[in-house]
Design a protein around this nucleic acid. Sequence first.
DNA 1: ATATTAAGCGGAACGTTATTCCGTTTATAC
DNA 2: GTATAAACGGAATAACGTTCCGCTTAATAT
Lengths: 193, 193
Amino acid sequence: MRADAQRNIDTLLQTAMAVFATSGVDAPVREIAEKAGVGVGTIYRHFPQRSDLIAAVLRREIDACADAALVLAAEHEPGEALARWMLRYVDFIATKRGLAKALHSGDPAFDTLPAYFRQRLEPALRALLESAVAAGEVRADVAAEDLLGAVASLCMQAYEKGPDHAKRMVALLVDGLRYRASSAAPFSSRSAD
Amino acid sequence: MRADAQRNIDTLLQTAMAVFATSGVDAPVREIAEKAGVGVGTIYRHFPQRSDLIAAVLRREIDACADAALVLAAEHEPGEALARWMLRYVDFIATKRGLAKALHSGDPAFDTLPAYFRQRLEPALRALLESAVAAGEVRADVAAEDLLGAVASLCMQAYEKGPDHAKRMVALLVDGLRYRASSAAPFSSRSAD
DNA sequence: ATATTAAGCGGAACGTTATTCCGTTTATAC
DNA sequence: GTATAAACGGAATAACGTTCCGCTTAATAT
């Protein structure tokens, strides 16, 4: 691959992420091209459909969120790392204005995203969770996938209620995790998908 | 108001309802104008925005569904009237492909619709329900608003599962209503909004 | 260093949509 | 019947996603 092509792809993903965060995923392709300093043709060369660009941005954001878990785990105590990553995850979800609708639009470009989401984020959270449990800082009876789903729901519900509401609810959840730390009850709460 | 204007509005609402039912609410305005035998200008004279037409069609359908309750109550025994109206309500919900997304789009034309929905349908169902309860044909411990919500959820959930699934689930619900008729337990199950 | 070339680029052009505008038609009041 | 204001139709406009193609340039061979 030519160097300028790779450079443009990187610039585009960065620019598109910023534009999607402020204007939502319905932002015009022209606007992204303009802000990135490229022609629309360049976008369509690398992302044949508008939805391909959205999916690529999302995958990159999912990766970044998953990678953040490693960094936080290295820099903080297990419980603190877990708490910080939860807020990081809320930031990730919070900027996804209008994405839920796009996901359900039936566009095949989004077909593999839910699986990718789980594939990347579930192990990341599970690792944080297990460390915190091993350190006796949080209780052992909550599954990573349930936590991911619960927080996503909270963020969606809290969407109209302001930006802080979600963080407060999630903080509450994390406090709940800490409440019965080391209670060693081998009861795994599995529920939603 | 001029007679032709009123005639066109009626024709438009009818045509739009049919088009929305088959092509979804995203059907082009031109298509509706063509099928109604009017120019697009005529549509925009009466419905300044595309969403205004959608909202008007919906209000009309809500009215028709509510009015059907009176007719059914006059023509059938209370229990039968209730059962038939429930299926009528399913028909109403079932043709609303893609409407949930439109409702949540933030378009101000839809702002008053949820309230209108409840205002018209809740009393209609409540009347049927109370008659059936008074006649000893169904149990007394289910609230009209819960029933409306439950059926709407069933229809949305059953959406991908085929057209009959919703009706079977709702029929099951109605049978459940009949199961403990006259059990006179003064327990009002209120839950979702 | 230079020539070659294919990958990559920009943006004009196209197709499809919602929406506006205005010259023409027509229902209504007198 | 005539006047006139309301209503009509559809061409024009605007905003979008997407395609296309002549020009530019990075990579490579010589």
